[in-house]
């Protein structure tokens, strides 16, 4: 594999790390979800970069399109859950939720 691939993978790893840190430390439900979004940016960067490095860019694009479609579905579901939670508790604070830890 060539070195450009490693460069992109290094940046993708940074993005995934930032997202995971957000998931572990933040308390706002929407903020947690922004963390998930950052992780998925890292993943789609890694996919397209892999295709680029392997000269397989068309397949990589097809995969990334599917990935983004899935991401949209997950985002819509998650935001619907967040809005419903807010209707119950009037708050977005994770500490106000009885069971939720982590």
């Amino acid at each position: 594999m060539n070195n450009t691939w490693l460069l992109y993978i290094a940046f993708a790893a940074v993005l995934v790390f930032v997202g995971l840190y957000c998931l572990l430390s933040m308390r706002n439900l929407i903020k947690l979800f922004i963390g998930i979004e950052v992780i998925s940016k890292g993943i789609s960067l890694a996919f397209v970069a892999t295709g680029f490095a392997k000269k397989n860019i068309l397949v990589a694009q097809a995969l990334a399109v599917t990935f983004i479609v899935i991401e949209v579905s997950v985002v819509a579901t998650a935001l619907a859950i967040i809005i419903n939670t807010y209707r119950h508790t009037r708050s977005l604070d994770i500490r106000k939720l009885a069971k939720l830890k982590g």
Binding site: L23, L100, G102
Partner: peptide
């Protein structure tokens, strides 16, 4: 759509 359900679902999703 109760509070427990939503919390559990959110945690599961994450």
């Amino acid at each position: 759509l109760g509070q427990d359900e939503l919390e559990a679902s959110f945690k599961y999703l994450m």
